[in-house]
C-alpha cells in the first residue's frame, strides 16, 4: 500500500519540484527549456574543482550552469563522486557566500584591537595635554581652604538641624579634596 503511494508520488515528482535557495538557484526553474540547451553547452566550461575560488566572480547564468551540473552529478552513486565534486556540491549549497557570508574577515579582530588601542591612546594624550596646558585648580579646592570653610560654617552655625552644625555630626563638612 505504502509503496503504491510512494510510486504515485515519485511519478508526480518530476514536473513539480520545490527547491530551497541552498541548492539550485531559484532562477534555474524559471529558465525555459529553450535556454537550457545553451546553458548545458556552457556548463562544461566551468571546472568544478575550482568552483570555490571562482564562485564570487561567476555570473548568475554560470552559477545556474554549475547548479545544474551538480544536480546531475548528485544523482549518481555518491561513492563515485570525486572529492572535488563533493566539495563543490557542499560549497555551492552551504558555502560562505550569499546569506552565509561571514560577518568578519580573518584579520578583523586584530584591526579592531589596534584601532581601539589607538583611540584610547589619543584620548589619553588629549587628556594629559589638556591637564598640562590648562590652568591649575582653583585655590578653593585645597584642603586648607575647605577646612577654613568648615570652621567658618561652625562659627556661623550653618545648617543646625541636619548639617555641619547639628549635634553628633560625623560628616566631612565642606572638605572634599584630599
Amino acid at each position: 500500500m505504502q509503496s503504491v503511494v510512494r510510486l504515485a508520488r515519485s511519478s508526480s515528482r518530476a514536473p513539480f519540484r520545490r527547491c530551497l535557495a541552498t541548492t539550485a538557484a531559484p532562477s534555474a526553474d524559471a529558465l525555459s527549456s529553450s535556454s537550457a540547451s545553451s546553458v548545458s553547452s556552457r556548463s562544461a566550461a566551468i571546472p568544478l574543482s575550482n568552483v570555490e575560488a571562482q564562485w564570487a566572480r561567476l555570473t548568475s547564468e554560470e552559477k545556474v550552469a554549475v547548479h545544474e551540473q551538480l544536480e546531475v552529478l548528485q544523482q549518481k552513486d555518491w561513492k563515485e563522486l570525486t572529492i572535488d565534486e563533493k566539495k563543490a556540491a557542499y560549497y555551492v549549497a552551504f558555502g560562505p557566500h550569499g546569506p552565509r557570508t561571514p560577518t568578519s574577515q580573518p584579520g578583523d579582530s586584530l584591526k579592531i584591537l589596534l584601532a581601539t588601542g589607538a583611540l584610547l591612546g589619543a584620548a589619553g594624550v588629549l587628556f594629559y595635554a589638556a591637564r598640562a596646558l590648562g590652568n591649575p585648580p582653583p585655590k578653593t579646592l585645597t584642603k586648607e581652604w575647605q577646612e577654613a570653610t568648615n570652621e567658618r560654617a561652625l562659627e556661623m552655625k550653618l545648617n543646625p538641624i541636619t548639617g555641619i552644625s547639628s549635634e553628633g555630626y560625623k560628616g566631612k563638612g565642606f572638605v572634599q579634596s584630599t
Binding site: T23, E71, Q74, Q75, W78, L81, A89, A93
Partner: peptide
C-alpha cells in the same frame, strides 16, 4: 537526502 539527490544536505546533517 539521498532520495532527493542532495549530497550537501546529507553532509550538513552531520554538521
Amino acid at each position: 537526502a539521498r532520495r532527493v539527490n542532495d549530497y550537501a544536505t546529507a553532509v550538513r546533517v552531520f554538521e
